[in-house]
Amino acid sequence: MGGRVDPPDGTPEGGPNGGDDEYRSLVFDESFIKAARLQEFSAQERLQDEEHAAVRPRPEAERRGPRVGLGLSRQGLILVLLIALAFGTAIYMGIRNPYRSPARTGAEPLHSEVLPLAPTGPVPGSNPADLFANSPAARFATGADGVALPPVRSSGRFSESQVLAALTAAKDYVVESSLDPDVLTGGAVRPVRVLLDPRQQRQFDQSVENPRNDGRHAATAWMVRLDRSKVELASPKVRVDGTLAVQEVGDGLEVTADHVFVYAVRPAGRGKGPGKNPGKGAGKNPGKGPGAGRTASLFSVRRQVHFRFERQDLRDREVNVRQVAVRAGPMNCGEDPSDALSPLLAGERAKDAGKAGTDPFARGRSTASMCGLLASSAQPSPDHPSRPSR
């Protein structure tokens, strides 16, 4: 009977074979104990202080407290960095948005050509009404009515409203630079300058302050300016005829304005008006000849102006003038047309018509070579059929 015998009522609870077998695999190793946050007081400590709590925080747990706070600070810092990164990414993507308008490049300078037209005979003179009635300008409209807009349609990349904005801006420039009396003979430049793209205003200012017939700095390319020391307007009604056309080129719109302006002029000082103020060419006297005593003659200017409009130009209502070609007469071939146009008046003849030549050995730009002959059919004549003017 020396073997192991279980008690009659079975193994007591908590014994080696009791109900705690399921916890037998749980090992309270050193790391587990050190991880505990609370520690019981010993029996001796409880006897010494009966009112003391049964447990106390472990020193290790107290030391871990700041680590927990540090961990939370790191999490907050990471969260702030993530928010900042997301915000920065949003800004970058906004700047790099492919649907935004491309950055504007520097404006191209204006290229121009101003060509005087010399008459082959004396300049006809009469009163403005008869001159207009007996000239090709009899069928022209008056003033801004002659700068009519074409039918407006949308293009591939531009809406109808954008095309209309381009045409309207071009018309405004043509009207201000060719029909404003203060610009024509008063020396005003601001009505034209304020319409320009700011990137072109410096070239405009150089052309006004130091005009040169070099293809880039002629004031008369930007606007029609008459020599107010010599002539004044004989009639406020300017006859105009021409067209405006628009087309899409690349990422912009190009507008071409092609108009003929016919002005009735007379010698300066013959009446009230801006021509009474002397300026360039003071001291010149109108030539004598048939019809020299008549009060008015016609002066015609053909202007072809090419505009370029980018999307920002359309939003800001700014004009970018790319190219201008001017044909004006009757004038002397030898006149420098860069500052102001000097019309020949009634009865005057061109001094150098047909005499100007081109010297291929001459360096630089020759003003004498830039001249043409004004056809007799462009001058007022009783042979022109009289048509009712608009």
Rank of each mutant, 00 (worst) to 15 (best):
L253R: 02
L344V: 07
Q200M: 02
L164K: 12
R104E: 11
R139N: 09
A353R: 14
A282G: 13
R100D: 13
P181A: 09
V189A: 04
E348I: 00
A43L: 08
R58E: 10
L298I: 02
H259R: 06
P267E: 01
V175C: 10
T120W: 00
D197R: 12
P330W: 03
S126Y: 14
L85N: 07
P181V: 07
L110I: 02
R100M: 11
D313C: 14
A221E: 11
Q44H: 08
L341G: 07
G283N: 11
K237W: 14
L184R: 01
E232F: 05
V114S: 00
V123L: 00
K276Q: 10
P7L: 00
A346P: 01
L344R: 05
E232H: 12
R303A: 07
N134M: 07
R308L: 15
L179G: 04
F132V: 08
R96V: 12
R46I: 04
E348S: 03
S300A: 09
V183E: 04
A86P: 05
A296Y: 02
G329S: 02
E176F: 11
L253T: 02
D251R: 15
V163A: 02
A375V: 06
R308A: 12
G106T: 13
L70Q: 06
S161K: 03
R202A: 03
P124W: 03
V5C: 08
A218F: 06
D49H: 01
S155H: 12
S207I: 02
G250M: 14
R199A: 13
D180R: 14
A340S: 15
G106K: 13
G287W: 03
K34E: 12
A137K: 00
